[in-house]
């Protein structure tokens, strides 16, 4: 590895610390506000840490509804991840292997769909969900989430699959393996890093989605976490402490999953996104 002079190294360490501060400061403040008792007014100038930290906001944020919302979010997000990744893998495989003009055009159209603004298509989709009697069901959200995450997921998987040498499948075909077997036995196992990277991406997008969740669910027992945050925002003001506490609670699961899979996520991107 290249050597750095102590001076350079010191400067780089300084930069790295600076980066850490920029990244973490808002988090720190979120936690600080979440620990502030409701009775302690906000100080001017802002106080970095509450005088009398308390967990009361967390207790009140962790109400029975929260547990329902949490469960809903988990069910919807995990189902979406599973379905999106599967469909994206299949589609991306075709997009990288089939030498047909029409397939190329379809791919372009699928990826273009990513450009549609959600707020412009939500009422027509709502009417369809209504007609299919799917409002207030997990299915409506999962369908919508799978659809909105598919274009990028396909794009990510495609970048990854394009790196896999076709020779392996050709060799398998020579050995008499059908295309399905070649896919499941050769391609699939090699795709793991790409699958993890795509899955994490989809999970993060789905976990925080707001607009569709707001539109397709009206009953309290079907709401997801991001929509549930509105419980702390009234017509006349915001309950900051509880809002921040519930923000922390919402963020923790994805952060945990992410930290756990972080290496594989980066590895997946490394293998996929690189070398065009």
């Amino acid at each position: 590895m290249r050597r750095q002079t102590p001076r350079t190294r010191f400067a780089l360490m300084g930069l790295q610390t600076g980066l850490a501060v920029i990244v973490l400061l808002p988090f720190f403040w979120m936690i600080s506000v979440s620990l502030k008792p409701a009775s302690e007014p906000f100080a001017i100038p802002a106080r970095l840490w509450p005088e009398d930290p308390t967990l009361a906001n967390y207790i009140s944020a962790f109400r029975p509804e929260f547990q329902v919302y949490f469960l809903n979010s988990v069910v919807v997000s995990l189902s979406t991840v599973a379905i999106t990744v599967t469909l994206a893998l299949l589609a991306a495989y075709v997009f990288t292997r089939a030498q047909m003009r029409i397939v190329g055009i379809i791919m372009l159209l699928v990826i273009l769909a990513q450009m549609f603004p959600a707020s412009a298509i939500i009422i027509p989709i709502y009417r369809m969900m209504r007609a299919a009697d799917l409002l207030n069901t997990y299915a409506s959200l999962i369908l919508a989430y799978v659809t909105i995450t598919l274009p990028v997921a396909i794009w990510m998987m495609r970048g990854f699959l394009a790196r896999l040498p076709v020779t392996l499948e050709e060799a398998a075909a020579m050995d008499g393996a059908g295309p399905l077997r070649a896919f499941f036995e050769i391609v699939l196992p090699l795709c793991r890093p790409g699958i993890v990277a795509t899955a994490v991406f989809v999970l993060i997008v789905t976990w925080q989605e707001f607009l569709f969740a707001l539109s397709f669910t009206s009953t309290r027992d079907m709401r997801t976490l991001p929509v549930g945050m509105n419980d702390f925002i009234g017509q006349y003001g915001i309950r900051y402490g509880e809002l921040m506490a519930s923000s922390v609670l919402i963020s923790l699961p994805v952060i945990a999953v992410f930290l756990f899979l972080q290496r594989q996520f980066v590895a997946g991107l490394t293998a996929g996104a690189v070398k065009g």
């Binding site: 939500i122 009422i123 709502y126 209504r130 707001l214 539109s215 309290r220 929509v227 509105n230 419980d231």
Partner: peptide, 19 residues
Amino acid sequence: TTIPYPEYQQRLLTAVQGG
């Protein structure tokens, strides 16, 4: 069904629009 204020207008609107 009780609905937080920030989303009430949109929910009613989509509901009426969607029958």
